[in-house]
Design a protein around this nucleic acid. Structure first.
Lengths: 314, 314
DNA sequence: CGCACAGTATAGCAATATGTCATGAAGTTG
DNA sequence: CAACTTCATGACATATTGCTATACTGTGCG
């Protein structure tokens, strides 16, 4: 490192200053290096200090070490500030696709030094991945069940499912809507193993039917939305997911009340995980983004209510 | 470096062994690093030692430092053996193009770790470049003049100029050849400033003419050969340069004796330059290659003489 | 040619970083 | 739960590495 600094600075004194050392210190360590190597690193008796071939080649490695060292400091600094690092995120597909990925994009703009590595997974794999230190944070809907003291769960949105369909769906005009109406149309089922799958079972039980006419299953959110928009199919979806799609106006909420799962979307983390400011920042950003989202949803519902007719209860 | 070694080796003890240190030494320096950083680098209480995010990121830089350090050792080792390094070569264009570049190619095959950086220059710039440590070695024809004690000159081939022309040139059949014949054909002049230029002047004086019909000048060796081969032009060239082109059979030696310069091709180096085994190896290779070349030339001339007719003098 | 100056090497010394050995603590495994 | 492996800690030695002060050497100018 000293060799590189001296060669780059053009003199022992300047090179020493560049490293925050005194000239004698550098002079001596270079002399010792020369002795160790057994070859001159500088051409003696030249005033504009001139390196030998060997000196220049060694300086290349010295520069590499200097820059690696500097980067190491940057890594540490960036880490404690949370402005550098990697966030390994796991989450259920629909929420990730509908909302989280958008927030990730905004977060990446705010924190240019952070990278996000994301994997789709449901609750069982997610807890395993957290414990195996494969992910730092999970975004998942969780029921009342307690996962034990090893995990900490932060709710970010209360769970609320609805039946979704395309805006021009025939059932949108039918009043009153009855359970039997729902079974007359094809259904889109969510990914097997996802929480929505059990919600769908629950709804089936509540309306007293044993099965639905499931025409499509296993698709990602984008695929499901496309199918809903192009057909008269119905699907159980989290309200927030449908809400996030409101701009596109491809799917809407069918005004039929279904049993609600006792479940909330939230952030799952290890209790005793090592501090990671980048992850904390990310979690904070997600939480505040959902805080904002709740307000937007409230305003939106109010306006929908008003559009349907004045309601003093808000 | 220790962090990287420990993470790569999968344990403190193994990592320490990999660096030739004892386990407590590494254990403590890592503990001190953790204290300095203020963040854990490892997840405590996990038997297959697991690094935190910060630990892994710092290890990346550690690996960079390890490899730079290892490369530095390689550079030194390769340098003292002469198997690694850079040879900065300066030389006159015609010799470089005709012979040296070919030998450089052979040398590069022998020494895969050596790179050759070459620059075309004539004697004045060459000595300046040597003194300024811009080149390590020069290949140049030098006259009797002594350059002083700062330079050491190693002759590799006695200078010998001939008049070159294409094999089917009309003068090749004319006997006897007289000075006037030479002036009736166009000439190709070498690069201005090159030693051949002064040789050409000398030849002019010797045949009592003040100027020649110079039709082409300033070309590299390949260009000159092309022009000679396509026209009836003549040129003064070093015999060895023409000899090196014998395979292509594009130019040949016109059997007309011209005044010979008191000059030899050789290797010019600084007397007090820093030892550079790669350069020494290169110089040694060039010298031995020219040694071989001299033998080939001798055999060739003998066979030419025999072809012309038996000669008891050899 | 020699003097002044800038820059580099050397000397002496102090602090600390870094190593080793011995040993205790903690986690893993049969 | 005991044996074993692996990591952390303590006590100590020493080599590295830093600093201040000073001698040396090459450079440039009168």
């Amino acid at each position: 490192m000293q060799l590189a600094a001296v060669i780059d600075a053009g003199g022992v004194s300047e090179g020493a200053a560049m490293l925050g050392l005194t000239q004698p210190a550098v002079s001596r360590s270079l002399a010792m290096l020369e002795a160790r190597v057994g070859e001159p690193l500088f051409i003696k008796g030249r005033r504009p200090l001139q390196a030998t071939a060997l000196g220049s080649q060694l300086a290349v490695q010295g520069r590499a070490i200097i820059s690696a060292s500097r980067r190491a400091s940057d890594v540490v600094q960036g880490f404690v500030r949370g402005t550098t690092g990697q966030v390994r995120l796991g989450g259920v597909p629909f929420f990730i696709d509908a909302m989280i990925s958008r927030m990730v994009g905004e977060f990446l703009n705010l924190e240019p030094g952070v990278t996000v590595q994301q994997a789709y997974m449901n609750l069982p794999e997610l807890t395993a991945a957290l414990e195996a230190n494969q992910i730092d944070i999970g975004i998942v809907p969780i029921g009342a069940l307690d996962l034990g003291p090893r995990f900490v769960f932060t709710e970010i949105l209360p769970g609320r499912n609805i039946v979704a369909c395309r805006p021009g769906h025939p059932l949108m005009r039918k009043r009153p809507l009855e359970a039997g109406d729902l079974t007359r149309y094809p259904w889109v089922a969510p990914l097997p193993g996802s929480p929505l799958m059990s919600d769908l079972q629950m709804i089936l039980m509540s309306i007293g039917m044993s099965d639905l006419n499931i025409r499509y299953s296993g698709g990602s959110l984008m695929s499901v939305v496309h199918v809903l928009a192009e057909t008269d199919a119905l699907a159980v979806l989290p309200f927030s997911v449908v809400f996030a799609q409101r701009q596109e106006n491809r799917i809407t909420v069918l005004p039929y009340d279904i049993p609600q799962p006792n479940r909330s979307l939230g952030i799952l983390r290890l209790t005793s995980g090592p501090r990671n400011p980048a992850v904390e920042r990310f979690a904070g950003y997600i939480i505040s983004a959902f805080e904002d989202l709740k307000h937007v949803i409230r305003r939106h519902e109010r306006s929908v209510v008003w559009a349907a007719g004045p309601d003093s209860s808000m």
